[in-house]
């Protein structure tokens, strides 16, 4: 499979000649699998995942950066996929909620969400889980107050917050007491 390297300065090549609104060919590694795709410049990463790749685990809540339902990990960092243009992520590694489990074993954060009953309707949950995975990786949260602050980018309309915090505390402890 041909690869577009993520070298700085290498622009995604317009694939439709001189058309002013050309589509672009980009390469993304999504949940470990490298894919080459045609995208329109105005396609957000969220729409690419949901509509073009049929990875509908990632949710669209507000589409404006205000709820966190669309949170995914790009190059290891949690971002709102609704505000990211897919074309600008050429060469990136993307992990969605579908890519967290390994060989049929849930990610510790997923397992903790189940054990702590950290959801009701479940709509915000994929975003909460991806966000929590990002939070643990960042390693800046040391206590429940800091977990709440650093999870504030994920709104839960059902108000499952206490159990979400408990789940993240559990996953943090399993990871060795520290947040890393």
């Amino acid at each position: 499979m041909p690869v577009n390297p993520a070298t700085p300065g290498v622009a995604a090549a317009p694939s439709a000649g001189s058309s002013p609104v050309a589509h672009h060919t980009i390469t993304l590694t999504v949940n470990g699998t490298q894919r080459r795709m045609e995208v329109a410049p105005w396609t957000t990463l969220l729409d690419l995942l949901r509509e073009q790749m049929e990875l509908t685990g990632t949710k669209k809540g507000c589409d404006h950066g205000q709820c966190g339902a669309c949170t995914v990990l790009v190059n290891g960092q949690r971002i709102n996929s609704c505000l990211a243009l897919a074309v600008s992520k050429d060469g990136a590694e993307v992990v969605t909620v579908e890519g967290l489990a390994m060989d049929g074993t849930l990610h510790p954060v997923q397992a903790a969400f189940i054990e702590q009953d950290a959801f009701q309707c479940g709509y915000c949950t994929p975003g909460q889980i991806c966000s929590a995975v990002g939070l643990l990786k960042e390693g800046h949260a040391r206590n429940a107050d800091e977990i709440r602050e650093l999870m504030s980018g994920n709104i839960c309309r059902c108000g499952a917050y206490p159990n979400i915090v408990a789940a993240i505390e559990q996953a943090m402890q399993q990871a060795g007491g520290s947040a890393r």
């Binding site: 700085p8 300065g9 290498v10 622009a11 002013p20 410049p41 105005w42 957000t44 589409d63 404006h64 950066g65 709102n80 505000l83 990211a84 243009l85 074309v87 600008s88």
Partner: peptide, 27 residues
């Protein structure tokens, strides 16, 4: 365009209507 967190939002509301985006992300 850089992170896009403000510009993409405003474009979705039709408040910003650029004809061309020049991504500074690879500079």
């Amino acid at each position: 365009i850089a992170g896009g967190t403000n510009l993409v939002d405003l474009m979705k509301y039709d408040v910003e209507r650029p004809r061309r985006l020049v991504d500074v992300g690879a500079l």
